[in-house]
Computed example of a mutant assay.
Amino acid sequence: MAAQTIVVGTRGSQLALWQANWVKGAIERSHRDLTVELSIIKTKGDKILDVPLAKVGGKGLFVKEIEEALLDRRIDLAVHSMKDMPAEIPAGLCIGAIPKRGEPRDVLISRENLPLDQLKHGARIGTSSLRRGAQLLHVRPDFVIVPLRGNLETRLKKLHTESLDAIVLAAAGVLRMGLSERITQVLDETVMLPAVGQGALCIEIRDQDPRIAAVIGSLDDPTTRTVVLGERAFLNRLEGGCQVPIAAHGHIDDHGYTLAGLVCDVDGTHRLEQVRTGPESRSERIGVELAEALLAEGAGDILERLNTDAHN
């Protein structure tokens, strides 16, 4: 009997291919009767590289075209970075598995290997993320935030070609690419709260596809799923896409599930942050309650101003 083939949809960057190949290898090891192929799909976020992400508009900049291929049955499953996933999943699709999370934090890579507090006054910091820029400005209003687009390799090159003093990247991507020696500083969550789902992968499938669900079932890490779904419930209640200054990070310990959430003005002047703890079985409810607490503090006004500015 010929081996069955499963097609995995992915973006074409080196990091995306690393992630897709990791999933491919895991499937092939646990299902030796299957052949796994990759299908590289260009997304809107990959095509528009000369505009800051916040100005490109819309949610799902790095997933929409891949999700369309999944719905059209051109691929059998998709591998995304969880932090790129919009709060809402399209009808007909679902999160099939969330593998064990990698490092969730952000890292600073500075040209002269100086940590954040030693960078010169007016230092130029490159980042594609409003979340990162807002939190940097909250700590150091003197920083100049420079929009930084492109894949990981391109952004590392721009540290020198764009006369930047430092750049901020997701630690997980840097580590997955074997570039740990480039890291100047892992940024503490009190300085830089991570993006929702950062460090985790999302394996997306059709929600009425038991065959594929069974194939990837063993890749799901229940603890990571509980933690990340709580973060995503927080994001969903705030109706946020990946290009707004919203951050959240949860963890499970002896006290249960603890979730920290943040909403910040783009210039860092208004930073609203709270923490909630409760039973891990209620992680999603805790996410909603945390979002509602921030909305009561005025988070909705911050997000409304941001959305208004984005459309002007």
Rank of each mutant, 00 (worst) to 15 (best):
A3T: 01
Q4P: 00
T5P: 00
I6P: 01
V7R: 12
V7E: 01
R11C: 04
S13G: 02
S13H: 08
S13W: 05
Q14N: 13
A16N: 08
L17F: 08
L17N: 00
L17Y: 07
L17A: 00
W18Q: 00
W18I: 10
W18F: 03
A20C: 06
N21C: 03
W22V: 00
W22S: 05
W22Y: 10
V23A: 15
V23F: 12
K24L: 06
G25S: 14
A26R: 15
I27L: 13
I27K: 04
E28K: 02
E28F: 06
E28Q: 13
R29E: 12
L34S: 06
L38A: 06
L38Q: 03
I41C: 09
K44H: 12
K44M: 04
G45R: 00
G45V: 00
G45C: 06
D46K: 03
D50K: 05
A54L: 05
K55A: 10
K55I: 02
G58E: 05
G58L: 02
L61M: 11
L61C: 13
V63F: 09
E65I: 06
E65A: 13
E68D: 07
L70S: 09
R73L: 06
R73T: 08
D76F: 01
L77F: 10
V79C: 11
V79Q: 11
H80M: 10
K83H: 14
K83M: 11
M85K: 08
I95C: 08
G96W: 09
G96Q: 10
A97N: 04
P99A: 07
K100Y: 15
R101E: 13
R101G: 08
G102H: 13
E103D: 13
R105A: 11
D106F: 15
V107L: 09
V107E: 03
E112W: 13
E112N: 13
N113P: 00
L119V: 02
H121Y: 14
G122D: 04
G122E: 06
G126Y: 05
S128C: 08
S128D: 09
S128K: 02
S129W: 06
S129G: 05
S129M: 07
L130P: 05
G133N: 10
H138M: 09
H138Y: 12
H138Q: 12
H138R: 12
R140N: 03
P141W: 09
P141N: 01
